[in-house]
Nucleic acid binder design. Structure first.
Lengths: 254, 254
DNA sequence: CGGTTACTTGATCGAGCTCAATTAGTGTGG
DNA sequence: CCACACTAATTGAGCTCGATCAAGTAACCG
């Protein structure tokens, strides 16, 4: 804010949750000043990782969860057979590593898509703060719940949606998340490759490429390398779910 | 069933976690006697639901999570467009409804696959117990973590696996879960329809049927209506992941 | 620049879906 | 106890969406 605070940039690494612009999206949301102070004590340290670096690998022992501060991070699973599945893209304010609590080791890996910084919340401090700050426990439940709901929506996407619906859903979701962060929801850079997108959406890279070409032809968006501009947001939304089903199809109901 | 046991059935509803045979698989796991007593107070009541009944519907307001005591329950999501995605099958000792904490409404629906009973843990009591019994908080984190990991494995299944691999994975997982509950892992009844299985695995009913026929032909198992007998467990396991990939394919790595 | 990687575009193929017909359970009521 | 309706499951035939294979182009980077 003030010009003179420039000198304090080194301190920026030590920025507290009080001053963090992400506070409203992040763990502190809904906490009072005293509670945020407690939370601040629990944050072990801020770490920076570069494009392609692992934050943690599948199977790593640990007890920490992380919150993205800047940049973006993908999480993925790999099978013995060599193929991998991207399970999430994480933007500033989003939490990752929740899979560590089962037996104190990560069941997924996390790689930075670009230079990124994260706040680390160690398991020990995490348990402490859940005990001492009830609001924090509630907040944590909310985040975990959201994560599960999101994963379920991804199951629906992979289980039922067409290629077109998948990409449209992905772009729409990304757009909304960026907008919440004060960025443009209509013009943004993709931090992940076509490869990663395809992997995440259960599609081949070629399919992603062709879909982008088609969306462009139809005037839905323009895309140049990784820069996407949504031209027709309503059109994009209308592609998210299939319309043609007259009566319920592939029903889960009895 | 028997006329004489009717008298005791009423008591069955009031069984405590102390006496429950599921304790080792369920929430009380790792808790001491005093802590289990606290947990017992938090369990609001036991409920019985019949085949096809909803435990809760998508969008229902609430704050409770449930643990299956007997029977089995499926959870599912539905889109506006009318199609649905089964996101889980829940066996005794397994928790469901964790998606309720985000904004105090269920983002999924839950339907009994057969006559089932559940223990309800209300949100209020749940928060209380997490505060007063730290071990319970740890336990909860573990369960949530496991849920997330499982969902991620399902993303991998839907995103990368072939139809054969999907069904094999499903049967193997079911077999293991039943075995943990003291039931046979080689001969068991499927409580869900082919429809539900197909929906869950992202496959058409016909594909499930054909796969069962093929597995039978290959001597992997026999299936008669919903009764499955695994004849060659090693053979089943070997079908879980693709072998042919020489070098990493569809990689998530950069 | 030359080499590497990311992306695009075209042509072909196949796993699994859809449609259709049949069979086998499962009640339900007379 | 059986006839009827209804749902669940199987089996066959053909088709389609998106994968795979192949080639070319464009950005990036030492």
């Amino acid at each position: 804010m003030t010009a003179s605070s420039e000198v304090l940039n080194i301190k920026a690494i030590k920025v507290s949750c009080h001053d963090c612009s992400l506070a409203e999206l992040c763990l502190p949301r809904g906490l009072n000043q005293a509670e945020i102070t407690e939370l601040d004590h629990a944050i072990q340290h801020r770490r920076t990782i570069h494009r392609g670096d692992h934050l943690y690998r599948m199977g790593d022992r640990g007890r920490s969860v992380f919150v993205v501060r800047t940049g973006s991070i993908k999480t993925y699973l790999s099978t013995g057979a060599g193929d991998e599945q991207v399970v999430g893209f994480h933007l500033p304010g989003e939490i990752l590593g929740l899979d560590v609590f089962d037996n104190e080791q990560y069941s997924s890996g996390a790689i930075a898509l670009e230079t990124s910084s994260v706040c680390e919340l160690s398991g020990h401090h995490f348990e402490e703060i859940c005990k001492t700050v009830p609001a924090m426990n509630t907040q944590m439940c909310r985040l975990v719940s959201r994560e599960i709901t999101h994963d379920h929506e991804m199951l629906l996407l992979l289980g039922k949606k067409t290629a077109e619906e998948r990409l449209a859903t992905f772009l729409q979701s990304l757009s909304e998340r960026l907008q919440k962060r004060g960025l443009s929801g209509t013009k943004f850079n993709l931090s992940m490759s076509r490869q990663d997108m395809g992997n995440y959406l259960g599609l081949a890279v070629e399919t992603i490429s062709r879909l982008f070409a088609r969306f462009q032809q139809e005037g839905i968006l323009t895309v140049e390398r990784r820069l996407v501009s949504i031209r027709n947001p309503a059109g994009l939304k209308s592609m998210i779910s299939s319309h043609q089903h007259g009566q319920p199809v592939r029903s889960a109901q009895k």
